[in-house]
Design a protein around this nucleic acid. Structure first.
Length: 254
DNA sequence: AATGTGGTCAACCGCAGAAGG
DNA sequence: CCCTTCTGCGGTTGACCACAT
């Protein structure tokens, strides 16, 4: 915001510390937050005796110090959820992170970038080849196969992740012949409230085929209407309407 | 052994929206 | 309303490490 002084900028024009956090700083921050709770990050920075901006303090807490954070590699189950929720919401990392307890938006964002950007590149190459192939097969009418909504929905794991986010609020998907599909998600509780009981079966089965064959997004994008209780539909649609439609409107094209 | 390359991850930056005076 | 401040988000950067050449 223009005119904003920044996070806890002080009148002395003091130089804030930047860069990696030291164990001492971590300790100070943890102790302070455990004592006084989260929030008021600017005062946290000041009162905890940290020469850091409030923004920096918040980030360190959220991404590293907060209790309940998972360490280690993203599991295949989590990966499956990330893929599907990204297909739904696009780069809404914080929203996706809420359905993955113990994972931070930063972590998911990093994971996505390192793991799927290259896949995007690879699939782009494949797409190119496919287009060339189609061109070499004249008048094949470029038919699209549409799978019904009941055939292609979120994987059980992804649905469960959403469902379990709040037992009291159902994840509903309704569509009738005359209306656009509407996905309503429950308001979220804190991620720490969510528990999982995944099976050992690979969530990747039946997942990649759908999500990575999105050759033509444009056809159904205008039908997209993903209404979330927490966020305006237009916002969601602006990110990944095509994917949402592909998932919920049966717009898979092979 | 030296150098290059790619992956990973923590942290920073800029922006937008909410809240409060 | 307008302004300021706080908060949160998404994009990006840079350091570090492992592996390849």
């Amino acid at each position: 915001m223009v005119g904003m002084m920044g996070w806890g900028a002080n009148s002395d024009q003091q130089e804030w510390r930047k860069g990696p956090w030291t164990p001492e700083e971590d300790k100070l921050l943890s102790e302070y937050v455990n004592l006084h709770g989260e929030g008021r990050w600017s005062s946290v920075a000041r009162c905890a005796g940290l020469n850091r901006t409030g923004k920096s303090c918040r980030l360190r807490w959220v991404n590293y110090l907060r209790p309940g954070l998972k360490r280690g590699h993203i599991t295949p189950q989590e990966e499956g959820i990330i893929i599907e929720l990204h297909a739904l919401w696009g780069n809404k990392w914080s929203t996706i992170a809420r359905y993955l307890p113990g994972r931070t938006d930063n972590e998911i964002k990093n994971y996505w970038r390192t793991h799927f950007k290259k896949k995007e590149k690879a699939s782009a190459k494949q797409d190119k080849k496919k287009i060339l192939r189609q061109r070499n097969q004249p008048q094949q009418n470029c038919t699209t196969t549409t799978i019904s909504t009941t055939d292609k929905k979120l994987s059980p794991q992804a649905e469960e992740a959403i469902m379990r986010s709040d037992d009291n609020n159902a994840f509903t998907y309704h569509q009738n012949m005359d209306q656009d599909p509407v996905v309503e998600l429950p308001p979220l509780t804190t991620s720490s409230d969510i528990s999982y009981a995944w099976t050992d079966t690979s969530p990747m089965d039946g997942l990649w085929g759908g999500l990575w064959n999105l050759d033509d997004h444009s056809q159904a994008s205008d039908k997209c209407k993903v209404a979330l209780q927490n966020e305006p539909a237009t916002d969601n649609c602006s990110y990944a309407p095509d994917y949402a439609v592909n998932l919920y409107n049966g717009g898979f094209i092979f």
